[in-house]
Design a protein around this nucleic acid. Structure first.
Lengths: 348, 348
DNA sequence: GTTAATAATTGGAACGTTCCAATAATGTCA
DNA sequence: TGACATTATTGGAACGTTCCAATTATTAAC
């Protein structure tokens, strides 16, 4: 064994039938007699047959490759890792298999991996686009009729489906919650200003702030890399203000953790001396101390929904673009001080 | 455009050459004249040709599918996510593409995804096996001559390559470091006892402990789920002892973070009131506060090395199993107290 | 100007499958 | 018994590529 793979013809020969019959049992066709079916199946097991999907796919006019591609911009971010497992669970149970690639925010890499996936004949694509992705990058895909669903970030003008979370509503809720706790100087910290997600989250913050009696103030938004280290940095800068903030709504959970780190480095306690709320609700948010108040977006759920949208398009034949924004909810834990009932509390 | 994909024959027709010539330019053969080459390339671009790797792979006797499969047991664990990106970087630059699947520790799921990958004709497989994987699960793969490299966990008796980190040396170094700082009651916390990795890490701990003058004591090992929540739990249990530990070497970083959470919940400070060292050196370890002392295994590096091992086997034709254990090093940061120079230090 | 060598191109067979139309075997009805 | 369904099975063509052997065009050598 080992030399020369077992083909449908080998099976046919050994089972004393034609290759066509073997093909029929492979597709579980009702046309084939029960006794021949079991015979053929037995021979397959015996010879260690493995189906050659490439050959099958070649013959079938409709490219049902049973592969879906997923490309993310940063797999080391656990948000995307979880999104990928969400996708995996649903495509797997639909009999598909997942091609996963990581672009590390590189447009070039993204182009390469998408090209490679097309060469392998993916039936559809779920993409969390790298920063700077243009509508032209999606053009060849829609031209070829390949279903695509964009997640997390959308590409304005591209005629493909997208599934993004309601960033605006999320930060608005965060601000309203903090204002309700009595905070007046609430900062918006972290994130790169040149991204759509940043704009949306900042937009919700701005809207809610301008409804308070202090109003929106530009100096309270301090940006940084959307990472833990960036959060530390941004926090330190924020505290140099003449009148420093007493609370922060953060670009994402990583930044929020960074802010907590910064607080502790200054011997301050998150939730007690300063309120912080994050965005994403990554898995660590609920177990960390203090537990992080954050906007929950359920990355696995997003992955699952995106996969469902994609499968629907694949089965529909003609891909029809739909845009859905996934709602989001504030989950109040300890880091905002709302549930803190320890003595010595001195918020706002 | 869109209807009926563009084939090599379409290109040939449009460029006024034969399909064979087109095929030659696709493979960058030196046999073809420079002017025809550029002409053909131009036509390809113009018609939006995409290479059909399935068809090509079908023809080529040697199954050079340019796909490698990677299956991990828990993608939500950032260790594996990073491992996957390590693999991705090297296979991508070798012109391969990556099939990634997550088994969530399910043997059945693992069997399914491996079967599916074989149907797609993967050239090789990198597997972090689900708990309970047997040598029989690898049998069909070696029989079919498919190169496999096992990572993180090995499967005893399986005739495939493996790349595991030196767990024994890691925990030994951790214990020696803590003992050198004056700790005597050092706990081993977290992890499921029925796994090979647990045995190895516990083995290093036991060896180093029995060389101290207090010796190894069974009650100081307290197991739990290898997660943050598990760490909190195990820590709480450890502190109920008559003579509680003053330091912990943890099964992995997630557990170590959980221990830190537990400490803070008891108003104790990691690195000051209690020493904790982790295992893995995940990306957050260096940015968290206090920075985590841990055994660095460089998951991305492991992924890269595993990918290199696999590519070597793929190119060698005849897969030859090799077992390498990747060395590991203690990186001392703050959580063990060794670099702590703040006042009020009261370790051990 | 003939021959040989080299460079460039080409048609056809093959890879492992699916689909179609055709056939064979069996049963049913008058 | 003949005519017709119904049920099982089958050979061959096709999918898009690569490879081989064969062919033609070009250049070099005498």
């Amino acid at each position: 064994m080992g030399k020369g793979r077992v083909t449908v013809i080998d099976i046919a020969k050994a089972a004393g039938v034609s290759k066509s019959t073997v093909s029929l049992v492979l597709q579980a066709s009702p046309l084939v007699n029960e006794t021949t079916r079991s015979k053929v199946n037995a021979v397959m097991r015996e010879l260690g047959y493995v189906y050659n999907r490439g050959a099958a796919n070649l013959r079938q006019a409709n490219a049902q490759s049973k592969i879906i591609g997923i490309v993310v911009n940063d797999l080391t971010n656990s948000f995307f890792a979880e999104l990928a497992v969400g996708v995996d669970t649903v495509v797997q149970s639909a009999g598909f298999v997942q091609f996963l690639s990581n672009t590390s925010e590189s447009i070039d890499r993204q182009r390469e991996v998408i090209a490679s996936m097309r060469e392998h004949g993916v039936s559809g694509l779920i993409v969390s686009p790298a920063r700077g992705t243009e509508t032209i990058d999606m053009k060849p895909l829609v031209a070829a009729g390949i279903p695509v669903v964009l997640v997390v970030r959308s590409v304005p003008g591209a005629k493909v489906s997208s599934l993004v979370s309601d960033n605006h509503a999320g930060t608005r809720a965060a601000v309203e919650h903090l204002a309700g706790l009595g905070h007046r100087r609430i900062a918006f910290v972290g994130g790169f200003p040149d991204t759509a997600v940043f704009d949306e989250r900042l937009g919700g913050y701005r809207e809610a702030m301008s409804k308070t009696n202090v109003g929106f103030q530009n100096d309270l938004v301090v940006s940084s890399a959307p990472s833990r280290a960036g959060g530390v940095d941004a926090f330190m800068r924020a505290m140099t203000m003449a009148e420093p903030p007493t609370a922060a709504v953060c670009f994402n959970d990583a930044v929020a953790f960074g802010v907590c780190d910064g607080l502790r480095a200054r011997r301050l306690e998150p939730g007690k001396d300063f309120a912080v709320v994050g965005f994403d609700d990554v898995i660590e948010a609920k177990t960390t101390v203090p537990a992080l108040t954050t906007i929950s977006v359920d990355p696995q759920g997003i992955g699952q929904r995106a996969a469902q949208m994609l499968l629907k398009q694949i089965n529909a034949g003609k891909p029809e673009a739909e845009s859905v924004v996934s709602s989001v909810r504030l989950v109040v834990r300890e880091s905002c001080g709302a549930t803190d009932n320890r003595p010595g509390r001195k918020l706002a």
